[in-house]
Structure formats: C-alpha cells, structure tokens
Design a protein around this nucleic acid. Structure first.
Length: 482
RNA sequence: GGCCCCAUCGUCUAACGGUUAGGACACGGCUCUUUCAAGGCCGGAGCACGGGUUCGAUUCCCGUUGGGGCCGCCA
C-alpha cells in the first residue's frame, strides 16, 4: 500500500529465530513452549527457525541428552529449518571474537583466581553489599596484560561494560531499563579457554543473523549483558520477546521437583503430541474468541506476539488431560487403534472387534494407555473381580439367576447374538425371576469385565460374542457361587 | 540484600476507559441412563490493596502488598 509500508518491508529481512537448549537435562515443557512460540512465529512471519545446541558446559552437558531433546522435539512436531548447530564445534568463532574484542579494547584480561573472587564475593556479602567485580583487570595496561598472558598466567576475558543505562525494548514487556551500576564486567571466556554462555550466545546470534530472540523471562535480567555484547561486536540489536515462566501448582518455576516437567514424561503418560502442542501454545497466548482447540495450521496462521501475555502461568495437568480427551474424541478410529495397541497387553482383540471397542470406549478414556487397557479386556478373560462389586451385586440367589440367564442365552444363535436380543433375553429372565433387570445386569457386567463400570453392557456382550460371554458367565458363577 | 519482571474466578484466559466482567479446566446440580463416562442444560466462583488522572476506571500513572526471576571461570 503506502510507500513507508513497502519500504519497511524491504528494510526488514524475513525474521530468523532460534531455540537454543543446553543438553543438561531432557526437554522441559517450558523449553518446549519457548521452542513452539519460536516455531509459530517463524511460520507466521515466513521466517526461519534455527536449532542450536548450547553444549559449551563440559561438566554438565551430556551427548545422550542432546539425542533425547532432539527426539522429544521431533515427537512434539517442533521442526526446524536450520541446524542443529553445536556450539562445541564452533570454538574457533568464539576465540576469534574474543581476540577481536581484546584487540579493540572492548574486553580485557582479568587475572584473579576463582578463590580470590570467592573471597571478594563473601566479603561483599558479609558487608551486606551487592557484589560487583572490582574491575581490577581493566586497569592493567595492554602491554602488561599481554606480557602476563604470554608468561603463562591464567586469566579470564571480561567485557568492559559501558557505564550507561541500558534500555531493552521488549516486544512483550515494553521498555525495560537497567541502570549501569547494576551490571559488572562479566566473564566471556574461562581461564581454560571455554567460552561462557552469554558470550557464545551472542556470537552465534550475530553469526546466524538472528533477528528476534524469543525466550523465557528468566533471561530478561541477562539481556542488558547481551545488548552490551551485541554493541561491542558491532552487530545490530535483535528484537527481544520475553515469555512468562511456566509455574508448578505451587507457583514456583516448573522443575523436575514438580514431577512431569519433561516432555517425554507426558509422552509416556499417554499425552498425544498434538494435544500437548495445543495446550502449550495456549499457555501464554490466546488466539482471541473462545477457541481452545486449534489445528496446527490455525496456530501457524494466527500466532502473534502481541497476543502473548506477560504474566507467568501455572501448568495444569487436569486441563492437559481434558484436551487430550478432546483429541481422542476426534481421532480417526484406525489411528486411535494404532496408537492404543502398543498398550494393550497381549495385543488386544482381532481388528474388527477392536475397531468397535474403540468407539465404545472412546468417550470413556483420556489416553491411548487407558484405551489399550480397554482393548485388552476383550482379548483376555478377567483375572479377578472387583471386591466392592462382588459385595454389592452378588447375593445368595445371584448364581441361580445367572444360570437361568445362561440357559436362555444359549438359545440364541451366533447370528442372533446382538445387543438388542441379548438385552431382551436378560430382561425376560429377570421378569421370569421376578426381579429387576438391574439385579442381573450388574453381576453380568462384573462377570464379563471384572469391574462395575464401563461401556453399555449389551454392547459389550455383543462384542464379546456368544462363546466368550457364556464362558465368562460360567467362570464367574463357579468362582463366586456357593 | 541489589536490580528486574508479573498481578481478572482455585487454574488457563478474553476485555485494549463506559460490558449484568465472557469462555475453558476443575467443582456442584439437573438431564440422559443398566454402571461409568461423554454430551446437553444450570449454578457457585474473579478485577490484590491504597492513592491519583478522568464525566467515568478491571483497563492509564504512582505507591503498598504478594508472587516470580537474575545477580558464577552454570546454562
């Protein structure tokens, strides 16, 4: 439309975003939500989503965890356009950047030992003051610094923070200011040559031409460091968007301590990836209107940071389970069957029976695991009967009534064995015995399924078939009778 | 302790100065019914507090309180 619109489009390249987990644990739901927002943002803005593994912490990073994170992302459908890139393979880049900053006087060597720093920190604490690095290294001349380095003295590289307020324009939080005296000259490179988090992040974000940094709120306080670093590196400052934390029910940052903080734990609990994706997307973002169940396409089309809230959100497993049930309700039977069979002990009944069982139990289960259990009950006779059910529904004359029921049911041919006709037979039997149908229905359910709750009895009877139904009835009578 | 962020039902959220403050989960009731669900209907439940600004504040500003985060040669 207008000149300025086309101009701004021309001057802002397509966005590049990244998700940068460190393999020090499995994929956390908070991390997954961050990745998901990056993905949605990239799709919506026709940008590029990059995956970068931040494995510079040699003590804590573990290779197998990278594999776990990758597979959890794949399972959830968090697909990236570029990467994964590994920071551990990019040390040359960090070394070159550090040398450049040193040369340009934007960073300097500091020769304090960890023990000395520890002592300073403790002293500050004892004095009730906030600890700041003294800046001693800054006052060493570059000649002397060079000389000591060449002499083999150990040193770290620190950034010379400018003495000015740093302003962060956050897409979600607005303008946030950090006074200069709250920041000190933080360490870029360890004495063993390892680049540290803040440094490798910024060097990579510059190198990968990241335009928008969407990450957790816990990084907001780190952002002035990053801004200073981007400036020192002579790079443009990306846009920032800091997401509210995901909390446990105790309103503390969600962690393993809360149980089920990892994506794979939910996977193993029978949560469908689509459901978790949908649920996580709505933890902080609302599409507007009253919609809750959205397709991936809708989310990719409608996601916008403007509609992302700033406040933290509590992760509610109950609602996740509800959402899972919503997805189960709509899933094609074949697919639901395929997802449930792995959880059916013994593989469940033949496919035609299984498919009908799926429809019977679909509204009654919330996970494929529960569905698997239901399927298994059609293939194997009950191994035990619910104790409370026996007590409640088995009376002295129950066995006799069930025997009468069996006799009459035997009169039905295989072809006549339907829900309607078996029901009719049961009701006739009850009437003949002068009792209500319930007196027979409940013990029959117990006999056929072992429990007192479940799908409509006569549908179950029909599905089980004549032979199995009668066998289970007989067994029940023998095991519970006089 | 210093700095920073956040604040609508128990929970997730809608509202972008004027609404009987809407929806969803959970909860309770009714309905359906052989049980349990699912579904449908109904209900209880919220603008943290105090000052401003304004004709008018849930909404804007300041403060208080409460919660959270960051302050490493961790990420």
């Amino acid at each position: 439309m207008s000149d300025s619109a086309s101009l701004s489009t021309a001057s802002s390249p397509s966005p590049r975003v990244r998700f940068a987990p460190s393999p020090t644990g499995s994929l956390h739901v908070g991390g997954a939500r961050t990745a998901l927002y990056n993905l949605l943002f990239a799709r919506r803005e026709k940008g590029t989503f990059i995956l970068r593994i931040e494995d510079t912490d040699v003590e804590r990073s573990r290779e197998e965890l990278t594999g776990q994170i990758l597979s959890a992302m794949e399972w959830l459908g968090l697909d990236y356009d570029e990467g994964p890139f590994y920071q551990s393979r990019r040390y040359d880049l960090y070394r070159a950047a550090a040398e450049r900053l040193l040369r340009e006087g934007k960073a300097y060597r500091a020769f304090e030992t960890p023990e000395e720093l520890d002592a300073e920190r403790r002293a500050a604490e004892a004095a009730g003051k906030a600890y700041r690095y003294s800046g001693a290294g800054r006052r060493i001349s570059s000649e002397e610094s060079e000389r000591r380095a060449r002499a083999g003295e150990r040193f770290v590289v620190r950034l010379a923070m400018p003495a000015e307020t740093i302003v962060v324009e956050d897409l979600i939080r607005g303008r946030v200011e950090f006074p200069a005296d709250a920041l000190d000259d933080f360490v870029l490179v360890r004495s063993d040559g390892h680049p540290l988090y803040h440094f490798s992040v910024c060097v990579d974000d510059v190198d990968m031409r990241i335009t928008d940094i969407i990450r957790g709120d816990d990084h907001l306080a780190n952002t002035p460091k990053h801004v200073a670093l981007f400036r020192a590196l002579g790079a443009p400052i990306p846009r920032f968007a800091h997401l509210g934390m995901i909390l446990g029910t105790d309103r503390k940052k969600l962690s393993k301590r809360h149980g089920a903080a990892a994506v794979e734990e939910w996977r193993d609990a029978g949560i469908l990836p689509e459901a978790l994706f949908n649920f996580l997307a709505l933890l902080g973002w609302a599409p507007g209107g009253d919609r809750e169940i959205l397709t991936r396409e809708e989310m990719e089309r409608e996601f916008s940071l403007e509609r992302v809230g700033a406040s933290p959100s509590v992760f509610d497993p109950e609602k996740l389970l509800w959402m899972n049930a919503q997805y189960i309700a709509k899933m094609p039977a074949e697919e639901l069957l395929a997802r449930s069979v792995p959880f059916a002990a013994g593989g469940g009944p033949p496919k035609d029976v299984a498919l009908r069982a799926i429809e019977l139990h679909r509204p009654r289960v919330r996970t494929p695991i529960e569905m698997g259990r239901a399927l298994a009950s059609y293939a194997a006779d009950p191994s035990a009967y619910e104790a409370d059910g026996l007590k409640k529904h088995v009376k002295p004359d129950t066995a006799g009534q069930l025997e009468a029921l069996e006799r009459r049911l035997e009169g039905l041919s295989e072809a006549e064995w339907t829900a309607a006709s078996t029901e009719a037979v049961l009701r006739e039997t009850a009437e003949a015995a002068g009792v209500s149908a319930g007196k027979l229905i409940h013990p029959t359910r117990l006999a056929l399924t072992g429990v007192t709750v479940g799908a409509p009895l006569f549908d179950v009877v029909a599905l089980l078939g004549k032979e199995t139904s009668l066998r289970r009835l007989r067994t029940f009578r023998q095991r519970t009778g006089p």
